[in-house]
């Protein structure tokens, strides 16, 4: 186990700068998730930590070692790939033993280590199968087995669940998290799925266009997004964002709709701002903002309503079941303490 430190890490592809000086500290034993939309540089960053991409500038340290110029095999890491990258011509046992054989471990040692990893992941009955004889979830588990068999200092996961179906993804999410708790290992995990990030991470790094937008625990990011991008990216259904101008301690939005401001926020009068309201913080009320119901999506536990208020479509997530039909009018009120306010020009939280 080891900590990982990134100092001003930069990546150029030719003339194009894709990562702009990323600095991060990953604590020993931490589960860190890099999340962001496609092309934000999260996978590139992970591959740089793995040693599969060169570092254009900056330093990467794993434990006490500066690894900038070390080949992947000398970094004491293991990586789980999106497509599993199991060797198709080797049985599960040999897939897992490959690294150990290269490290010239004795036969008995290899058998013991493979056995141990197989027990942790419940792979014992699959050891003599070929990867093509396994289901997607089993292949994923073998890929993890191949990683843990070596007992590396740091585990790197590159979107490992994106090829699985929704149900299996939930199950594997829990397994990876349980594995982390059992092994107490340092994990850096890349995903574009913010639910995966929220459910698994100790800390989340939200990235966009090669910059870090915010670093924090899942609930910090959810409750206090640092900017509009994080606010919109984290949370499902996504946060409602309402543009308007501040006047008389209220927000004047398009369509003549007035919104309260969050307590404590002190924007200047006339300032152009964006108000953020999470769908669960819009609740039916006798007084508030009236609008026409345009879409009803019952999920069972919650009902998601899309309501048009002042020419803008807002989503409300209601725990209690509402008796309202399409096209009917519904009055919603925001919870003032749970509102978020952002400067429109800079996108920063106010």
């Amino acid at each position: 186990m080891a900590s990982v430190e990134l100092r001003d890490v930069v990546k150029f592809y030719g003339e194009l700068e894709v990562l702009h000086g990323i600095s991060l500290d990953v604590a020993d034993g931490e589960f860190l998730v890099l999340v962001g939309p496609s092309g934000c540089g999260k996978s590139t960053l992970l591959r740089m930590i793995a040693g599969l991409e060169t570092i254009s500038d900056g330093d990467i340290q794993i434990g006490a070692n500066l690894v900038n110029d070390l080949p992947p095999k000398d970094r004491d890491i293991a990586m789980v790939f999106q497509n599993y990258a199991l060797y198709p011509h080797m049985r599960v046992r040999d897939n897992m033993a490959f690294a150990l054989k290269l490290a010239r471990k004795s036969r008995a040692e290899i058998d013991a280590m493979v056995e141990r990893a197989a027990n942790i992941l419940d792979l014992g009955h699959l050891l003599d199968r070929y990867p093509r004889e396994l289901s997607g979830g089993q292949r994923q588990r073998v890929a993890m087995g191949r990683a843990i068999v070596r007992d590396p200092a740091v585990f790197l996961f590159d979107e490992p669940l994106s090829n699985l179906d929704a149900k299996l993804r939930v199950q594997m999410r829990a397994e990876i998290k349980a594995l982390h708790q059992r092994l107490k290992s340092t994990i850096i995990y890349v995903t574009h799925d913010q639910i995966e990030a929220m459910t698994m991470a100790d800390r989340i790094v939200v990235m966009r266009d090669g910059y870090v937008e915010q670093v924090g625990s899942p609930l910090e990011l959810y409750d206090r997004p640092a900017n509009l991008f994080v606010a919109a990216f984290i949370g499902s259904p996504a946060m409602n964002l309402v543009e308007g101008i501040v006047a008389d301690g209220r927000l004047h939005a398009a369509g003549g709709v007035d919104w309260p401001l969050p307590p404590g926020a002190r924007p200047g009068a006339g300032q152009e701002v964006v108000l953020g309201v999470r769908p669960e913080h819009l609740t039916p009320a006798a007084e508030g903002l009236a609008g026409r119901v345009e879409l009803i999506e019952p999920t069972g536990a919650e009902t998601h309503l899309v309501v048009e208020i002042g020419g803008r479509q807002l989503t409300a997530a209601l725990r209690e079941r509402v008796r309202v039909g399409l096209g009917e009018t519904l009055t919603l009120a925001p919870v003032p303490e749970a509102l978020h306010l952002f400067d429109k020009a800079s996108g920063r939280r106010l």
């Binding site: 793995a50 095999k73 293991a78 990258a85 060797y87 690294a99």
Partner: peptide
């Protein structure tokens, strides 16, 4: 042949020649 297989082997500690002999040639 998927590049990821070679990357996995690189991380597993294989040299280029070993990758050629143990991964690429059999495939």
């Amino acid at each position: 042949i998927p590049r990821e297989l070679e990357e996995a082997a690189l991380i597993d500690g294989a040299s280029r020649l070993r990758i050629l002999v143990s991964i690429i040639v059999p495939l």
